[in-house]
Computed example of a mutant assay.
Amino acid sequence: MKRLAILGAGGHGKVVADTAECCGWEHVDFFADGWPAQTTNGSWSVVGDTSLLIEQLSHYDGVVVAIGHNSIRKAKLDELARVGAPLVSLVHPAATVSRRASIGLGSVVFAGVVVNADAVIGPGAILNTGCSVDHDCVLGECVHVSPGARLAGGVRVGNLSWIGIGASVRQLIRIGAGVTVGAGAVAVSDVEDSVTVLGVPAKVFFRT
């Protein structure tokens, strides 16, 4: 029996678990730092916290971090990597991923996603439901592309950036590190590091 541990037991985790089952994982357990107060996540059991997961790594064939916040997800992935956790990626069978694209370790790719030729997806990414990443895009570490977002060809997205739901990025644009592209925004020019951009066309709303 293939056993998967998922760290992070919120709504995003439910989609990760459902994707895992569609990928053939036969048994899924959740771990969350809210345990033991939280013992279930929808149809699945929460059986421990991060420390207990690390103690029980030998019980699992794979581990995925299902935390939507990019920085927290990266910290947990780094912690698990240091102790030799068997980190895996998940690609939903209803996603379309070119055989010439690459998906980084610890990433999740949900139903309806399209990743085209020579796209490079960094480790720990979330490609959320129905988004598209076109040819030659390069996404850094722990990027989140939200449902329905669109990246045209040759876009580069820096580490820990978040592309909001329904947002669009024009071809060959560079999105910096630690950027938030707001819901429905349209980025038609390069975006510097550590800013939030909103609107059509997208403009800097604030800097962090």
Rank of each mutant, 00 (worst) to 15 (best):
Ala20Leu: 08
Val186Gln: 06
Glu26Leu: 14
Trp25Gly: 11
Gly84His: 04
Glu79Ser: 11
His59Glu: 15
Thr208Pro: 00
Val115Gly: 03
Leu172Cys: 11
His59Cys: 12
Val200Ile: 14
Leu77Pro: 03
Leu90Asn: 11
Leu53Val: 01
Arg150Lys: 15
Val186Met: 09
Val63Leu: 12
Pro36Ala: 02
Thr40His: 10
Phe31Pro: 08
Val191Ile: 15
Leu77Ile: 09
Trp25Ala: 09
Trp44Ala: 09
Ala202Tyr: 03
Cys23Arg: 08
Gly8Lys: 09
Glu21Thr: 06
His92Tyr: 04
Asp136Met: 05
Arg150Ala: 14
Gly34Arg: 11
His69Gly: 05
Thr50Arg: 13
Val64Trp: 00
Glu192Thr: 12
Val186Ala: 14
Ile103Ser: 00
Ile126Thr: 05
Val97Ser: 02
Asn128His: 03
Cys22Pro: 01
Ala75Phe: 01
Ala125Tyr: 00
Ile121Phe: 02
Asp49Phe: 02
Gln38Arg: 14
Met1Phe: 08
Gly166Ile: 05
Ile121Asp: 03
Lys2Tyr: 07
Gly176Lys: 07
Arg156Tyr: 02
Pro36Lys: 05
Arg73Asp: 02
Lys74Pro: 00
Leu80Met: 09
Trp35Ser: 07
Val115Pro: 05
Ile103Gly: 01
Ala66Ile: 15
His59Gly: 06
Gly154Ala: 08
Ile72Trp: 05
Ala94Pro: 03
Thr129Met: 14
Val16Gln: 03
Ser107Phe: 02
Val46Cys: 05
Ser45Asn: 11
Trp25Ile: 15
Leu172Tyr: 12
Phe205Arg: 11
Val47His: 13
Lys74Trp: 00
Gly153His: 12
Gly158Asp: 02
Gly178Glu: 07
Lys203Cys: 06
Ile121Arg: 08
Val47Leu: 14
Cys22Asp: 12
Asp190Leu: 13
Ser45Gln: 13
Gly42Met: 07
Gly164Tyr: 01
Val109Gln: 07
Cys23Gly: 12
His144Asp: 11
Leu77Glu: 00
Leu160Val: 00
Asp190His: 08
Thr39Leu: 06
Lys14Cys: 09
Asn41Gly: 08
Ala185His: 07
Arg73Met: 03
Val181Gln: 11
Gly24Phe: 02
Leu127Trp: 03
Asp134Ser: 13
Asp49Gln: 08
Ala202Thr: 15
Leu151Tyr: 04
Ile54Arg: 13
Met1Ala: 13
Asn116Val: 09
Arg82Trp: 02
Thr39Lys: 14
Ser194Pro: 04
Gly182Ile: 05
Ser51Asn: 15
Pro86His: 05
Ser194Tyr: 14
Gln56Met: 12
Arg73Pro: 05
Pro201Trp: 04
Trp162Arg: 07
Val155Asp: 01
Ala183Asn: 06
Ala125Leu: 07
Phe30Arg: 08
Val157Thr: 04
Ser161Ile: 13
Thr19Gln: 05
Arg100Tyr: 15
Val65Gln: 07
His135Cys: 12
Pro201Ser: 07
Ile54Glu: 11
Asp29Lys: 10
Val46Ala: 03
His144Thr: 14
Asn70Ser: 15
Ala125Asn: 15
Ala111Trp: 01
Val88Ile: 15
Cys23Pro: 12
Ser58Asp: 14
Ser189Gly: 09
Ser71Ala: 15
Gly62Ser: 04
Gly104Asp: 00
Ala117Cys: 10
Leu127Glu: 03
Val16His: 02
Thr50Cys: 13
Ala17Val: 10
Asn41Met: 11
Gly106Asn: 06
Asp78Phe: 01
Leu87Tyr: 01
Val157Ser: 00
Ile165His: 03
Val204His: 06
